[in-house]
Design a protein around this nucleic acid. Structure first.
Lengths: 204, 204
DNA sequence: GGCTTACTTTACCGATCGGTCAAGTAGGCC
DNA sequence: GGCCTACTTGACCGATCGGTAAAGTAAGCC
């Protein structure tokens, strides 16, 4: 039944890349098509609209990142170490992007949410979904840390919200200052928010 | 020498309002002119470009908010109380916007920085300037709290960065969830980040 | 081999984008 | 009263926006 094509995947990747390093409004459908090497007609064969492509691109990006996250947040790892490795990873990722593009690019989902939450309900909902998935990883980790007595929190979900807010805020500050080093504050902030006792390598 | 006009001020106010509740890319020069009741020719009489207007609008907004901030962060007030009142104020402001527009709108400077940091150097620089002004208020307050022994931090500037990141992140989460109540986590997060002893009304 | 279906190609749409321009008008200053 | 200057007016620009349509082509299925 008909031929098959990798145009869809190329569009998803091009869209994520371009929108992440620029913004949703700053990237046109033509830009995405050009980067993907796909004609505009094909674009609208695969996606009903620009915003539908964006939503699909975020989902595809998550799907590709999830195996790595599952490894990072594996319950076989000590919860404090999970958090520390995650902090390190965040800095590394942004630093790499900084070297590649010359800019700290922040979190793609948060960028989209910040720009479009009041304008595009589908994208707002997708950003919220992504946020909730992150919060689930954090909540589980914080709960484990609490159970083994290495963190002192009241409600793990609320603590996860606080930790996640610190991450989003530092990513945003790093982006606005265009300096990945801002993210080095993250580990200390997490230790304080969770009242972590005897961090493996204390930073504050 | 010539007549004088309030068109400039009307444009600044219209631009801030529209961009804050939508986004820079989502608002056109025509939109701003229409809201301000000013013709496009007049727009370009006062401002060389859309982004110059945006920068001027952020500065004007800061100037109008500064007296209030100076009162809030007055060194005559107990530093812990300054922080608590600020947390309360942030929630009230967003809640008010939520009631007015139906949306949590977040921080105008952070929104602009998030959207345009990699695209418009002038706006990125302005967002960074705004951020630094906030950090100055916070750093001074944290320093005062540290001196009177009610907070325990190592470097006040770094602590200010952490507190500010929590604010930005919670504002962003509140915007993406479109729920002002997310900001109620702020006070508890600040208490933990600064290791505040005996908060006036403990929340965690 | 032929039919169906999936995908590609390309030209095109009206609307809107940021920005320009030249002519006109009104207020302060001498 | 006249002139300079600040400001207004509204028509206009080429480019680009997101999206459409119709014809063409190639791969899988029978």
């Amino acid at each position: 039944m008909g031929r098959h094509s990798d145009a869809r995947e190329k569009l998803l990747e091009a869209a994520l890349d371009l929108i992440w390093t620029s913004s949703y409004g700053g990237v046109s459908v033509d830009d995405i098509c050009e980067r993907a090497g796909v004609n505009k007609g094909s674009f609208y064969h695969f996606f009903p609209s620009k915003s539908d492509l964006a939503v699909a691109a975020y989902e595809a990006h998550w799907q590709s990142a999830q195996p790595d996250l599952d490894r990072l947040f594996s319950s076989a790892t000590d919860p404090i170490e999970r958090l520390q490795r995650w902090c390190t990873r965040l800095h590394e990722t942004q630093h790499q992007k900084f070297l590649t593009y010359g800019y700290v690019v922040g979190c793609p989902y948060a960028n989209a949410g910040s720009e479009l939450a009041t304008q595009d309900p589908k994208i707002r909902a997708k950003a919220q979904e992504m946020m909730d998935r992150w919060l689930d990883y954090l909540e589980a980790t914080i709960r484990d840390a609490q159970l083994q007595g290495s963190a002192e929190v009241d409600q793990p979900r609320a603590a996860a919200t606080q930790v996640y807010s610190c991450v989003l805020g530092l990513l945003l500050q790093a982006k606005i200052q265009n300096d990945p080093a801002v993210l080095l504050e993250l580990e200390s902030a997490v230790n304080r928010l969770l009242r972590i006792r005897a961090p493996l390598h204390p930073v504050s």
